[in-house]
Amino acid sequence: MDKMNFLFVGVGGQGVLTASDIAAQVGLDLGLEAKKSEVHGFAQRGGVVESHVRWAPLVGSPTCEKGTVDALVAFELLEAARWVDWLRPGGTVVVNTQRIMPMSVTVGDATYPASEAICEALERRAGRLVRVDGLTLAAEAGTTRAINTVILGALSAVLDTPAETWEEAIVRRVPAKYDAVNRTAFRMGREAVG
Protein backbone atom coordinates (compact mmCIF):
# COMPACT_ATOMS: atom_id res chain seq x y z
CA MET A 1 0.00 0.00 0.00
CA ASP A 2 1.53 3.33 -0.94
CA LYS A 3 -1.48 5.61 -1.08
CA MET A 4 -4.52 6.06 1.16
CA ASN A 5 -7.12 8.73 1.70
CA PHE A 6 -9.01 8.56 4.99
CA LEU A 7 -11.92 10.60 6.20
CA PHE A 8 -12.60 10.40 9.94
CA VAL A 9 -16.01 11.73 11.00
CA GLY A 10 -18.00 11.79 14.21
CA VAL A 11 -19.37 14.02 16.93
CA GLY A 12 -17.34 16.46 19.05
CA GLY A 13 -15.88 14.73 22.09
CA GLN A 14 -15.65 11.23 20.58
CA GLY A 15 -11.89 11.24 20.07
CA VAL A 16 -12.03 11.62 16.29
CA LEU A 17 -9.10 14.03 16.19
CA THR A 18 -6.84 11.85 18.32
CA ALA A 19 -7.62 8.84 16.14
CA SER A 20 -6.81 10.76 12.98
CA ASP A 21 -3.57 12.02 14.54
CA ILE A 22 -2.57 8.42 15.14
CA ALA A 23 -3.52 7.37 11.62
CA ALA A 24 -1.35 10.14 10.17
CA GLN A 25 1.56 9.07 12.36
CA VAL A 26 1.17 5.46 11.16
CA GLY A 27 1.52 6.68 7.57
CA LEU A 28 4.77 8.39 8.47
CA ASP A 29 5.95 5.30 10.34
CA LEU A 30 5.24 3.20 7.26
CA GLY A 31 7.76 5.35 5.40
CA LEU A 32 5.21 7.44 3.49
CA GLU A 33 4.52 11.15 3.60
CA ALA A 34 1.42 11.89 5.65
CA LYS A 35 -0.76 14.94 6.15
CA LYS A 36 -3.92 15.50 8.13
CA SER A 37 -6.37 18.33 8.40
CA GLU A 38 -9.33 19.29 10.49
CA VAL A 39 -11.32 22.24 11.72
CA HIS A 40 -11.55 23.21 15.40
CA GLY A 41 -13.68 25.76 17.18
CA PHE A 42 -17.33 26.67 16.89
CA ALA A 43 -18.61 23.51 15.24
CA GLN A 44 -16.96 21.23 17.75
CA ARG A 45 -19.41 21.74 20.59
CA GLY A 46 -21.62 18.72 20.03
CA GLY A 47 -21.44 19.30 16.31
CA VAL A 48 -19.96 17.31 13.44
CA VAL A 49 -16.21 16.72 13.42
CA GLU A 50 -14.34 15.77 10.26
CA SER A 51 -10.66 15.04 9.88
CA HIS A 52 -8.82 14.15 6.70
CA VAL A 53 -5.72 11.91 6.65
CA ARG A 54 -3.68 11.22 3.53
CA TRP A 55 -0.77 8.86 2.95
CA ALA A 56 1.30 8.85 -0.25
CA PRO A 57 4.92 9.07 -1.33
CA LEU A 58 4.21 12.77 -1.88
CA VAL A 59 1.10 14.48 -0.50
CA GLY A 60 -0.06 17.89 -1.73
CA SER A 61 -3.40 18.96 -0.30
CA PRO A 62 -3.96 18.13 3.37
CA THR A 63 -7.64 17.46 2.58
CA CYS A 64 -9.10 14.77 0.33
CA GLU A 65 -11.23 15.46 -2.70
CA LYS A 66 -14.82 14.29 -2.64
CA GLY A 67 -15.01 10.94 -4.41
CA THR A 68 -11.45 9.89 -3.55
CA VAL A 69 -11.78 8.64 0.04
CA ASP A 70 -10.53 5.04 0.28
CA ALA A 71 -11.70 4.56 3.87
CA LEU A 72 -14.47 6.44 5.60
CA VAL A 73 -14.00 5.94 9.34
CA ALA A 74 -17.24 6.99 11.03
CA PHE A 75 -17.50 7.15 14.80
CA GLU A 76 -21.26 7.54 14.66
CA LEU A 77 -23.92 5.94 12.49
CA LEU A 78 -25.72 9.05 11.24
CA GLU A 79 -22.40 10.72 10.41
CA ALA A 80 -21.42 7.70 8.28
CA ALA A 81 -24.53 8.30 6.20
CA ARG A 82 -23.87 12.04 6.00
CA TRP A 83 -20.33 11.62 4.68
CA VAL A 84 -20.56 8.44 2.59
CA ASP A 85 -20.71 10.45 -0.64
CA TRP A 86 -17.04 11.37 -0.11
CA LEU A 87 -16.13 7.72 -0.70
CA ARG A 88 -14.58 6.60 -3.95
CA PRO A 89 -16.70 3.97 -5.69
CA GLY A 90 -15.69 0.66 -4.11
CA GLY A 91 -14.24 2.30 -1.00
CA THR A 92 -14.50 0.96 2.53
CA VAL A 93 -16.67 2.21 5.39
CA VAL A 94 -15.71 1.38 8.97
CA VAL A 95 -18.59 2.46 11.17
CA ASN A 96 -19.11 2.52 14.90
CA THR A 97 -22.80 1.64 15.20
CA GLN A 98 -23.33 4.00 18.13
CA ARG A 99 -26.20 6.50 17.75
CA ILE A 100 -25.80 9.99 19.21
CA MET A 101 -28.96 12.08 19.04
CA PRO A 102 -28.52 15.54 17.53
CA MET A 103 -30.41 18.43 19.11
CA SER A 104 -32.68 18.60 16.04
CA VAL A 105 -33.96 15.13 16.99
CA THR A 106 -34.22 15.81 20.72
CA VAL A 107 -36.31 18.93 20.26
CA GLY A 108 -38.58 17.06 17.88
CA ASP A 109 -37.78 18.77 14.55
CA ALA A 110 -36.34 15.62 13.01
CA THR A 111 -36.22 11.85 13.37
CA TYR A 112 -33.14 9.71 13.69
CA PRO A 113 -33.42 7.01 10.99
CA ALA A 114 -33.47 3.34 11.97
CA SER A 115 -30.03 1.76 12.26
CA GLU A 116 -30.85 -0.91 9.70
CA ALA A 117 -32.02 1.66 7.17
CA ILE A 118 -28.72 3.54 7.51
CA CYS A 119 -26.66 0.37 7.26
CA GLU A 120 -28.53 -0.70 4.13
CA ALA A 121 -27.88 2.69 2.57
CA LEU A 122 -24.18 2.37 3.43
CA GLU A 123 -24.09 -1.19 2.12
CA ARG A 124 -25.40 -0.02 -1.26
CA ARG A 125 -22.63 2.54 -1.58
CA ALA A 126 -19.55 0.98 -0.01
CA GLY A 127 -17.31 -1.68 -1.53
CA ARG A 128 -17.01 -3.01 1.99
CA LEU A 129 -18.93 -2.11 5.13
CA VAL A 130 -17.41 -2.97 8.49
CA ARG A 131 -19.69 -2.47 11.50
CA VAL A 132 -18.13 -2.17 14.93
CA ASP A 133 -19.97 -1.89 18.23
CA GLY A 134 -17.33 0.44 19.60
CA LEU A 135 -19.16 1.41 22.77
CA THR A 136 -19.66 -2.18 23.96
CA LEU A 137 -16.16 -3.31 23.02
CA ALA A 138 -14.52 -0.28 24.65
CA ALA A 139 -16.51 -0.89 27.84
CA GLU A 140 -15.37 -4.52 27.80
CA ALA A 141 -11.78 -3.39 27.29
CA GLY A 142 -12.03 -1.25 30.41
CA THR A 143 -13.28 2.24 29.48
CA THR A 144 -15.80 3.73 27.09
CA ARG A 145 -13.22 6.41 26.36
CA ALA A 146 -11.27 3.87 24.30
CA ILE A 147 -13.88 3.79 21.51
CA ASN A 148 -11.44 5.48 19.17
CA THR A 149 -8.82 2.80 19.84
CA VAL A 150 -11.36 0.05 19.12
CA ILE A 151 -12.17 1.71 15.82
CA LEU A 152 -8.49 2.05 14.91
CA GLY A 153 -8.15 -1.68 15.65
CA ALA A 154 -10.92 -2.42 13.18
CA LEU A 155 -9.43 -0.04 10.62
CA SER A 156 -6.01 -1.66 10.93
CA ALA A 157 -7.55 -5.04 10.13
CA VAL A 158 -9.19 -3.67 7.00
CA LEU A 159 -5.93 -2.24 5.70
CA ASP A 160 -2.91 -4.24 4.70
CA THR A 161 -0.72 -2.76 7.44
CA PRO A 162 1.09 -4.39 10.37
CA ALA A 163 -0.83 -4.28 13.66
CA GLU A 164 2.34 -3.44 15.58
CA THR A 165 2.80 -0.15 13.74
CA TRP A 166 -0.68 0.94 14.81
CA GLU A 167 -0.36 -0.34 18.33
CA GLU A 168 2.96 1.43 18.83
CA ALA A 169 1.59 4.69 17.44
CA ILE A 170 -1.37 4.43 19.82
CA VAL A 171 0.64 3.82 22.98
CA ARG A 172 3.04 6.63 22.06
CA ARG A 173 0.07 8.99 21.84
CA VAL A 174 -1.87 8.06 25.02
CA PRO A 175 -0.74 8.48 28.65
CA ALA A 176 1.33 5.49 29.86
CA LYS A 177 -1.19 4.47 32.50
CA TYR A 178 -3.72 3.69 29.74
CA ASP A 179 -1.31 1.45 27.78
CA ALA A 180 -2.89 -1.82 28.76
CA VAL A 181 -6.50 -0.79 28.21
CA ASN A 182 -5.68 0.71 24.83
CA ARG A 183 -3.77 -2.37 23.70
CA THR A 184 -6.76 -4.50 24.71
CA ALA A 185 -9.21 -2.14 23.01
CA PHE A 186 -7.10 -2.14 19.84
CA ARG A 187 -6.99 -5.94 19.67
CA MET A 188 -10.72 -6.23 20.34
CA GLY A 189 -11.42 -3.85 17.48
CA ARG A 190 -9.05 -5.74 15.23
CA GLU A 191 -10.61 -9.10 16.07
CA ALA A 192 -14.11 -7.74 15.57
CA VAL A 193 -13.46 -7.56 11.83
CA GLY A 194 -14.42 -10.84 10.22
Binding site: S104, V105, T111
Partner: peptide, 15 residues
Protein backbone atom coordinates in the same frame (compact mmCIF):
# COMPACT_ATOMS: atom_id res chain seq x y z
CA UNK B 1 -21.01 7.96 -4.82
CA UNK B 2 -24.62 9.13 -4.48
CA UNK B 3 -25.43 10.93 -1.24
CA UNK B 4 -27.85 9.07 1.03
CA UNK B 5 -31.41 9.97 0.09
CA UNK B 6 -33.32 6.85 1.16
CA UNK B 7 -33.71 8.33 4.65
CA UNK B 8 -33.75 11.96 5.81
CA UNK B 9 -30.57 12.82 7.70
CA UNK B 10 -31.16 15.18 10.63
CA UNK B 11 -28.71 18.08 10.92
CA UNK B 12 -26.33 18.24 13.85
CA UNK B 13 -25.84 21.89 14.79
CA UNK B 14 -23.44 22.73 17.63
CA UNK B 15 -25.06 22.95 21.06
Amino acid sequence: VEPVDEVALPTRPPA
